[in-house]
């Protein structure tokens, strides 16, 4: 029988959502349509339509050393063209955001190539070649991994993950990069990810409702969603890992 990865343990909806997001064969549901130009605007690395800046000549134009690994690995489009490395960073609210930092790095490792994810408690950064990044960022924003109110695109001053939401149900942002249009209920970015005001607003759609968020979140939260202790299998798994690590810490020699 062919090996079938399990991705992660758990019996709750949260665990099921995590498995879906991690499985590269599962197509992520597309729920908004932010254009290429808008993604470039929000990231703020280059002006839309301008040429990609490069860090080195295209691979085809430079002498490559004889290396078996280079023969095995097909370079990504960005690497082929010699693009510079750029980033996008997300902050996810604890209040049932659809994704969370550890999950992001994990799923990106399954789904994307040529990336360098950085995982922190409340934010997650992904670095890669610029044209690859734009492609990946578009997928991260347009699919079920993103919620307009509870996920923030924030290059710096990211605080908000663990704070209470504001009265409009939006995650705190010290730089208020995204605001809600009170009439339409639409959320629009008015600053790029580092807080520089945008010339034109970028609309990212309406926030998802509480029911959708509770059904699609990958974060345990005992007050607003599913508590971690409600998932016996997950608790057992974490306790086993914890016990093994502690025991190994006391007896670091192999039998």
């Amino acid at each position: 029988m062919a090996y079938k990865p399990q991705y992660c343990p758990g019996q709750t909806q949260i665990a099921e959502n995590r498995r879906k997001q991690l499985d590269p064969d599962h197509k992520l549901e597309k729920i908004r349509d932010v254009t290429d130009k808008d993604v470039v605007l929000v990231m703020g690395h280059r002006a839309p339509g301008s040429a990609y800046k490069s860090a080195h000549p295209p691979l085809a134009e430079q002498q490559e050393p004889a290396c078996p690994i280079r023969k095995l690995v097909t370079p990504t489009d960005g690497a082929k063209a010699g693009d510079r490395v750029r980033y996008i960073q997300f902050t996810d609210s604890m209040y049932n955001a659809p994704c969370q930092p550890y999950q992001r790095s994990w799923l990106e490792a399954y789904r994307f190539r040529g990336i360098d994810p950085g995982t922190l408690s409340g934010r997650q950064i992904i670095e890669c070649r610029e044209r690859d990044l734009e492609k990946y960022a578009k997928e991260l924003i347009n699919t079920e991994l993103f919620d307009a109110a509870l996920t923030g695109i924030r290059g710096c001053t990211v605080h908000g993950h663990s704070l209470r939401l504001d009265e409009n149900g939006m995650m705190f942002d010290m730089l208020q990069r995204f605001v809600m249009d009170k009439k339409s209920g639409m959320i629009k970015y008015v600053k790029d990810q580092v807080g520089v005001p945008l010339d034109s607003e970028v609309k990212v759609g309406k926030p998802m409702d509480a029911k959708w968020l509770k059904a699609h979140t990958t974060m345990f939260h005992s007050l607003v969603g599913t508590g971690f202790r409600d998932d016996a299998e997950y608790v057992e798994y974490i306790q086993r890992i914890h016990a093994l690590r502690v025991k190994y810490g006391f007896m670091p020699k192999e039998a």
Binding site: C156, T157, H159, D166, F172, M174, L175, V194, G195, V196
Partner: peptide, 21 residues
Amino acid sequence: PRLPVTVTYGPAKGMANPHSM
């Protein structure tokens, strides 16, 4: 959480920070 008048950190440091709150 504080709402500074200017951006305190990053490439936009020193720029005005309009905030409706």
